Measured scan of single mutants.
Amino acid sequence: MTSCHIAEEHIQKVAIFGGTHGNELTGVFLVKHWLENGAEIQRTGLEVKPFITNPRAVKKCTRYIDCDLNRIFDLENLGKKMSEDLPYEVRRAQEINHLFGPKDSEDSYDIIFDLHNTTSNMGCTLILEDSRNNFLIQMFHYIKTSLAPLPCYVYLIEHPSLKYATTRSIAKYPVGIEVGPQPQGVLRADILDQMRKMIKHALDFIHHFNEGKEFPPCAIEVYKIIEKVDYPRDENGEIAAIIHPNLQDQDWKPLHPGDPMFLTLDGKTIPLGGDCTVYPVFVNEAAYYEKKEAFAKTTKLTLNAKSIRCCLH
Rank of each mutant, 00 (worst) to 15 (best):
N117V: 01
L162Y: 15
L78W: 11
E47M: 10
M261E: 00
N23L: 03
E106V: 13
H201Y: 13
G79I: 11
I191Y: 03
T62D: 12
M82L: 14
L247M: 09
G19L: 00
F29Q: 15
V222E: 03
N284P: 03
K228E: 08
I157C: 15
F140E: 05
H33D: 07
E76S: 12
I52W: 03
N134L: 06
E76L: 11
H116L: 07
H21C: 12
P87H: 10
N37K: 08
A7T: 14
Q138S: 02
P151T: 07
A219C: 12
H10A: 15
T62P: 02
M198C: 15
L128T: 01
C218P: 03
D130L: 02
K59S: 13
W34N: 04
F73T: 12
N97R: 11
L78F: 11
N77F: 12
E40A: 02
Y109P: 07
F205L: 00
V14G: 02
L156T: 05
K144E: 02
K80E: 13
L255R: 02
E84V: 14
P183Q: 06
P245A: 01
V222F: 03
N37C: 09
I143G: 04
I6W: 13
C311G: 15
P87V: 09
F282S: 10
A165D: 13
F209N: 06
Q250P: 03
I6V: 14
K268F: 06
L263P: 03
T20E: 00
P217H: 04
A171I: 04
Q12K: 15
T166Q: 11
H21S: 10
T302F: 09
P102M: 10
I112K: 02
H201S: 10
I243T: 00
V229E: 08
S105V: 10
P50Q: 05
G27F: 03
E9T: 11
D190T: 08
H208R: 11
F209Y: 14
C67W: 09
D204V: 02
E158C: 00
H21Y: 14
R233Q: 10
K300C: 07
A171E: 00
V58G: 05
T125Q: 04
T119R: 06
N210F: 00
C311Q: 15
T26D: 04
F205M: 01
D249T: 04
E76V: 12
A296L: 08
K103E: 08
D234I: 00
K200D: 06
T166E: 11
F215T: 04
K81A: 14
S161F: 10
V90A: 11
D230N: 11
L187S: 08
E24L: 05
W252M: 08
K297C: 11
D249V: 00
F262Y: 01
C310R: 13
R63W: 01
C67Y: 11
R196D: 04
L78H: 10
I127T: 07
L272I: 07
L263I: 10
I96Q: 06
H5D: 15
D85Q: 13
I111C: 09
L136H: 02
A165S: 14
A287D: 12
T166P: 12
S169Q: 10
L150W: 10
L147F: 05
V175C: 00
L86Q: 12
H208N: 12
F113T: 05
Y164F: 13
A219K: 11
K268I: 08
P245G: 02
V48A: 03
R168V: 08
I199N: 04
E290C: 09
P149I: 04
P254V: 04
K300H: 01
Q248Y: 06
D107A: 12
Q12Y: 03
R92Q: 13
I220R: 06
R309A: 08
F113P: 03
A294M: 03
T125A: 12
R56Q: 13
A171S: 10
L187T: 07
D104Q: 12
P271H: 11
R91E: 13
N70K: 08
F209K: 04
N134D: 15
A305K: 01
H159C: 10
I177K: 06
H208E: 15
L69A: 07
G18Y: 05
E211T: 13
T299A: 12
D66F: 05
T2Q: 14
T264D: 08
Q42S: 11
L126E: 06
I226H: 08
K300V: 07
F262D: 04
M82P: 14
C67T: 14
H21V: 07
I226C: 08
T53E: 02
F51V: 10
N210H: 06
R63L: 01
I226F: 11
L115W: 01
I239T: 07
V14I: 09
I225R: 15
T166R: 11
G19M: 03
A165Q: 14
E227H: 03
P216L: 06
V222T: 07
F113H: 03
Q94H: 13
L303N: 06
H201Q: 01
R43N: 03
Q94T: 10
F205V: 05
D275K: 09
E178N: 15
A7M: 14
N134M: 09
V14P: 01
Q250N: 14
D110H: 05
V31G: 03
I157M: 15
I225P: 13
T118I: 04
I112H: 03
S3G: 14
Q42R: 11
R92V: 11
I65F: 08
C218H: 01
Y153F: 11
Y153S: 10
F215V: 00
L162Q: 15
H33P: 02
G22Q: 09
C124T: 06
H21M: 06
L147R: 04
Y109W: 11
K103V: 11
Y109R: 03
L136R: 04
Y231L: 06
P149S: 02
T166I: 07
Y153Q: 11
E8N: 14
P149M: 03
K144R: 08
P216C: 03
H208K: 14
I157T: 15
L25T: 15
G258C: 08
S120L: 06
H98G: 13
M82H: 13
K197F: 08
P260D: 07
S105F: 11
P55S: 11
Y153V: 00
T145G: 06
T264R: 08
P257H: 01
D104S: 13
H5M: 13
I127E: 01
M195N: 01
D74E: 12
K163I: 08
T299I: 15
R92P: 06
H256I: 07
L247G: 03
L162A: 15
I137F: 05
